[in-house]
Design a protein around this nucleic acid. Sequence first.
DNA 1: TAAATGTCATGGTGGGCGTA
DNA 2: TACGCCCACCATGACATTTA
Length: 357
Amino acid sequence: MPFAKCKVYSDGSHYIAIPPKPQKPWPKKGAKVKKEAPDLEELDDDEAEDCPFDKPAQPVQSVQLSLFDGEKNDDKQGESEEDGSKNEQTCKENEDNTASKPSRKEIFEQLYRKHINDNYKKRKRAIIQGLLPHSKNYDDAKLFTELNLRRKRNNLIARRIRMTRKANLQDFTHFVTLTYSNELHTEESFKKGLGDCLKNLSKRQGWKCMGVWERSPEKQRLHFHGIFYIPEGTMPGQMLDVNDYNFKSHRRRITHQNTYFNGRFGRSDFEEIADDEVLGDAMSYIMKYIEKSGERIVYYGDLPQFFVSDVMENDILCPYGEDGQKFILADTFGCWDEGEYVGQVSKETIAKLPKVN
DNA sequence: TAAATGTCATGGTGGGCGTA
DNA sequence: TACGCCCACCATGACATTTA
């Protein structure tokens, strides 16, 4: 008995199939969802003894449990009319969140960016201190910081998973660095111009790219690092081998530059991805950078996370994940689209199957 | 602690159109 | 034909929750 319409992704060494699950009904908008105080066990235990939930004598409800402090709450205010005191509090907080005054979340984001290079404990301490003037007390600031740090961590994990899955389904051809020249661009026009250019190349020439905007540590100059899939014959301009001096390694080296990008933006470096090692290095570079900086990954072109295929039982190597609800597939499994055999798994076969993002 | 997964709001993407 | 710009819509990121 086959498993129809499984979502299949690659973890880099194996393909994993996720059979479709019946969806759980989601609470309707406005429905009351019982919110519980966060479990202390889940919080970081480095300073757990300070947490207000340890002390029954202190009223728990006085602590703001929302991640957002009433911003985005405008439309929710009318939903719980019965809780007058709570509403009063929310209204007061919303008054505080006028256009001129940043919300606590915005202050958190600023502090988070400011202390991005500190280690976890130091950063947490600094954010709590920074939030103290905007909080009822220390416990309030601490809890708000812990909840938002956890949010940041979860988002990073989700970004990392998405990027890895997308990358594993592609055959990238180049690792590219693009830097702008002051004579051609401001930082703003460079970001917009390059974004438009890559968008058009992906739409018109089938380019695919994932990358990050980065500032060089020395000069703080904005540049773009990305891994690209460039279909043969679609490279605009001319490729040049330029004998260049590398200030980091203090050595001369040959860089592969492109006249189209050089003329339009300033400087380009194209390194061919000849093997998995180069791709792995490029991916870990981007991954490390997004972890370090909290920057978003930029995607251009068709980069799905999953392809959809029916899975035959004899192609399953073993169950995987919680209660074996997923399956690790054999290295050479057959792909099926709605009961029709498409071929043995390969990048060419995958290209013929429906995709899911 | 890491990872998976469903839902939702919104920023980014792609299609379409105008211009050179 | 190449490129720039606009805008509707959809993919992404954020969030909540669960699981291993």
